[in-house]
């Protein structure tokens, strides 16, 4: 395995662990991850996506490398509504303004938790602010040549997806 691939895997795992922790603690659901896949086009599998940019510096004995990427969590509408209902401890039947930033908060907490673990591995991330995109088959484009890994996740509120891309230079 190349050094880059090793760093890619090293980099992605804490995000999967973090989303499991968020769902277990605040949404009363265990999450299981299926095999990761390479994302083939810009179309999201979910109807609602929360996105956070990842920028930072990787420090090792060999020196320093800048890195950048994105964390994207994407939920089909039904999973989103059920997840929001669990997190807010209130039942919602549709997407309203009241639950509009639930996905961004889940993304924010996931990033914060992964950041701590990555910091211990030499990846120092500058925290950014989450944004969101919604609508069926919405597209999230990344720079040409950047690979995005999609991991399907299963929870008691339904299936959703975590996407990560990473490049260093």
């Amino acid at each position: 395995m190349s050094d880059f691939n090793k760093r890619y895997i090293d980099f992605c795992k804490p995000f999967i662990d973090a989303i499991k922790e968020v769902y277990s603690t605040m949404l009363s659901s265990e999450v299981t991850a299926s095999d990761p896949q390479i994302k083939k086009d810009a179309t999201s599998k979910g109807d609602y996506s929360a996105i956070m940019g990842i920028n930072g510096v990787f420090k090792s004995d060999d020196g320093e490398k800048n890195f950048k990427g994105n964390l994207i969590l994407s939920w089909p509408e039904e999973t989103y509504i059920k997840s929001a209902s669990a997190m807010l401890m209130e039942e919602y039947k549709e997407v309203t303004d009241e639950i509009a930033d639930v996905g961004m908060e889940i993304c924010n907490i996931t990033m914060g938790n992964a950041k701590k673990v990555l910091c211990e591995k030499g990846y120092f991330i500058e925290m950014s602010t989450p944004t969101s995109v919604s609508g069926p088959k919405h597209k999230i484009s990344v720079l040409e040549g950047v690979t995005t890994i999609v991991t399907p996740l299963k929870s008691s509120h339904g299936e959703f997806y975590i996407e990560l891309n990473y490049e260093d230079y």
Partner: peptide, 27 residues
């Protein structure tokens, strides 16, 4: 209340005089 739990952050809030802090996610 913070999503960032690195030791350096904990030190910053403690030095600033926080009464207590919680790392998200929490019950």
């Amino acid at each position: 209340i913070t999503a960032e739990a690195e030791q350096s952050n904990v030190v910053k809030v403690v030095q600033a005089g926080v009464s207590n802090f919680i790392v998200k996610p929490f019950k």
